[in-house]
C-alpha cells in the first residue's frame, strides 16, 4: 500500500510541477525609447542575475546616449548640430561619423535611392505627427536639398555643401544602436541574448537551450498578432521594413514613410515588406529599406553585392512571398 501511495504522490507532484523553470534564468526588460518599443532579453546562470540586471540597465543607457547623438529633433544632438551649422563644418562624435559613413555607402550601393540627406523631406512629411500630404511646392523645395554626394566628412567634422540640406539618420540609426548594445553585452560575457529595438533585432548565440531564436514576421497590414511565418536564427540580426508600418490614409490613398529621394513622395514599390537576415542590424536596416526602394526585380543583384547579407524574405503587393539566400523560414 505504501508503494502505491508513494507512486501516486510522485505522479501528482509531477503533474502540478510541470511549469518548473528551466536551467538558465532569463532577464527581460522593455522600455519606450527611440520612439518605439525596445526589449532586451538576456539568458544567464541564476547566480548572475544581479550582474545581468546591471548589464541590462547599462544597455538601455547606451540606447539613450546614442539617441541623444542621432536624433533629428533633439536640440543639441550631433545631427541637429550638422543641420543647423548654416553651411559651416560641424564637429561631431566618431559614432555619428561612423553611421554617416555607413549611410553614404548605402547611398553608393543604391545609386542614390538611399540618401541620408533626406532630412528636410522627412521632417516635412513628419509621419510621426502629421496626417496630410504636404504642398507640392514644399515637397519640391525639400526634395531639391537631397543629395548625399554634397556631404563632406573630414576627421570628425561634417560639412553640408548645401546649407539648406538636413541629415536624417533614422533609416539606419536603430540598427547601429542594436549592434552596439549587442557588442557591449558580448563584452560583458553574455552568451545568449536578444535585443529588439522596435523590430530591429540582434541576437547573441542561441536562445539558451541550444535552440535557435524564433522570430515571427508580421503580416503586412494584418493585426498585431498575425504572422506570415517564422525565421530561425542563431547569433545574427533580423530587420524588417515595410510600407504598412507608418503612414496615413488621405482620399483613399495610403501614404507611407519610405520616401523616394527622386520624387519626394512615398516610393511606389511592388514590395510591401522586406525582412533581411544579416551579420549585423545596420546592414539589415539599410538593405531592407533599399530593396523596397529598388523593387523585387533588383533584389537578388542587390543582395549579392553586400558582404554580411545572409538571407531575406520579401512580401510582394500581390501576396507572393520570395525567399533569398540562406534563411530558415517556415511560412
Amino acid at each position: 500500500m505504501i508503494k502505491i501511495s508513494v507512486l501516486l504522490i510522485i505522479f501528482t507532484v509531477a503533474i502540478s510541477g510541470c511549469e518548473n523553470m528551466q536551467a538558465g534564468e532569463q532577464v527581460s526588460e522593455t522600455r519606450l525609447l527611440l520612439d518605439t518599443f525596445c526589449t532586451i532579453t538576456i539568458h544567464g546562470a541564476a547566480d548572475d542575475i544581479d550582474k545581468l540586471t546591471d548589464v541590462m540597465g547599462r544597455a538601455f543607457d547606451i540606447c539613450l546616449e546614442y539617441e541623444k547623438l542621432f536624433s533629428i529633433t533633439i536640440e543639441g544632438s550631433d545631427v541637429w548640430q550638422i543641420n543647423h551649422a548654416g553651411g559651416e563644418p560641424a564637429a561631431v562624435s566618431s559614432q555619428t561619423i561612423e553611421v554617416m559613413r555607413a549611410g553614404i555607402e548605402f547611398g553608393e550601393l543604391s545609386g542614390g535611392m538611399f540618401d541620408i540627406t533626406l532630412g528636410r523631406l522627412s521632417r516635412l512629411w513628419d509621419f510621426g505627427g502629421n496626417k496630410s500630404v504636404p504642398d507640392k511646392a514644399e515637397i519640391d523645395a525639400a526634395q531639391a536639398t537631397v543629395n548625399y554626394r554634397q556631404v563632406n566628412i573630414n576627421g570628425n567634422f561634417v560639412h553640408l555643401e548645401n546649407p539648406d540640406a538636413w541629415i536624417d539618420l533614422g533609416a539606419i540609426a536603430k540598427g547601429y544602436i542594436a549592434d552596439k548594445i549587442a557588442l557591449y553585452l558580448a563584452e560583458q560575457g553574455v552568451t545568449s541574448a536578444l535585443i529588439d529595438l522596435g523590430g530591429d533585432i540582434v541576437t547573441i548565440g542561441s536562445r539558451g537551450d541550444d535552440k535557435p531564436w524564433r522570430l515571427g514576421i508580421r503580416a503586412p497590414f494584418g493585426s498585431a498578432d498575425e504572422y506570415i511565418g517564422v525565421i530561425e536564427i542563431v547569433g545574427a540580426s533580423v530587420v524588417s521594413s515595410g510600407i504598412y508600418e507608418r503612414g496615413f490614409d488621405e482620399s483613399g490613398v495610403w501614404y507611407h514613410h519610405i520616401l523616394d529621394p527622386g520624387t519626394g513622395m512615398p516610393v511606389i514599390s511592388d514590395i510591401v515588406s522586406a525582412t533581411v537576415v544579416a551579420d549585423n542590424a545596420i546592414i539589415g536596416e539599410g538593405l531592407s529599406t533599399i530593396v523596397i526602394l529598388a523593387g523585387s526585380r533588383e533584389a537578388a543583384a542587390l543582395f549579392e553585392r553586400v558582404p554580411g547579407f545572409i538571407g531575406a524574405v520579401l512580401v510582394l503587393e500581390n501576396g507572393e512571398v520570395q525567399i533569398f539566400g540562406d534563411v530558415r523560414f517556415a511560412g
Binding site: G199, R214, G216, A219, S240
Partner: peptide
C-alpha cells in the same frame, strides 16, 4: 501587452 505562451521569441515587421 498580452502575456501569452507564444512559441516565438520576438516579432519583426
Amino acid at each position: 501587452t498580452v502575456e501569452g505562451k507564444s512559441d516565438i521569441d520576438a516579432v519583426v515587421g
